[in-house]
Simulated assay, not measured.
Amino acid sequence: MSKWFAPITLEAETAKLVPLSLDHLADLQKACADGELYKLWYTGIASPDKMEAEIDRRLGLQADGMMLPFSVMDKRTGKVIGQTTFLNLDPTNRRAEIGATWYARSVQRSPINTECKLLMLGHAFDEIGVNVVEFRTHHLNHQSRRAIERLGARLDGILRNHMILPNGTTRDTAVYSVLPHEWPAVKANLQWQLEKPRD
């Protein structure tokens, strides 16, 4: 097993996960403007004018050992088209969460998210040796919940009034997880999704 989460590049056929950098600012600003993702009330994607501060925030949390943020690159174009993160890192209990994930609207129905999840889950279970990987989302974010459920993650429960969002509403958080003994089946499911013909 490799050491606890440290910056690394992970690569699949279409997606490449690279350590987050301010060098990615312009691409990330364009990506979040694609579909105006920052206007979604139930999630917290930075607007183009706030993206530099968001990158700085994530890099600060990385320096404190609390997260490992990635930029998601589309290898077909060489452009950064989103972000994803290992967060709430808990080395004592060997727990990690995959989250703070978003992609430009134009790539949301591509293989990229499935490839990213396969890369990240494989790194967490096969290289790091975690005891659990969590996924969390707003209980009303049905698109995100369906995507998490398609991975094969199981619903642990709903944390009611878990967070106060920037618009002042409270978020009930749906918590999902994958355990080590479930990983082989989840992996096979993700690989099957990538191999099956697309509509």
Rank of each mutant, 00 (worst) to 15 (best):
13 E>T: 13
183 W>A: 08
42 Y>D: 07
181 H>G: 02
118 L>C: 11
114 T>H: 04
144 S>L: 11
11 E>W: 07
174 A>P: 04
108 Q>V: 03
130 V>D: 04
172 D>L: 00
43 T>L: 06
197 P>I: 10
133 V>G: 01
191 Q>P: 10
48 P>R: 06
140 L>M: 15
197 P>D: 11
107 V>R: 05
176 Y>M: 05
151 L>V: 12
90 D>L: 06
43 T>Y: 05
119 L>G: 09
139 H>Q: 12
120 M>W: 08
170 T>Y: 14
160 R>S: 00
122 G>F: 12
54 E>D: 13
4 W>D: 03
104 A>K: 08
20 L>Q: 07
121 L>Y: 10
5 F>P: 10
183 W>I: 10
123 H>P: 05
70 F>E: 07
181 H>Q: 15
5 F>T: 09
199 D>F: 07
146 R>K: 14
8 I>V: 15
12 A>H: 03
185 A>R: 05
7 P>E: 13
164 I>T: 12
5 F>H: 02
174 A>H: 06
10 L>Q: 04
84 T>Q: 01
109 R>E: 05
93 N>T: 01
47 S>R: 05
113 N>D: 01
184 P>M: 05
119 L>P: 04
88 N>D: 14
36 E>I: 01
172 D>N: 15
31 A>H: 00
186 V>H: 02
156 D>G: 14
35 G>W: 11
189 N>S: 15
80 V>Q: 03
34 D>N: 13
37 L>T: 00
177 S>T: 01
148 I>E: 10
15 A>W: 02
195 E>I: 09
132 V>C: 14
108 Q>H: 07
35 G>A: 06
67 M>A: 13
181 H>F: 13
85 T>L: 08
42 Y>E: 01
131 N>A: 15
99 G>Y: 10
120 M>T: 07
136 R>Y: 00
44 G>P: 00
73 M>C: 07
158 I>C: 03
110 S>R: 01
58 R>D: 05
124 A>E: 02
77 T>Q: 08
64 D>K: 15
147 A>T: 10
35 G>M: 05
193 Q>W: 12
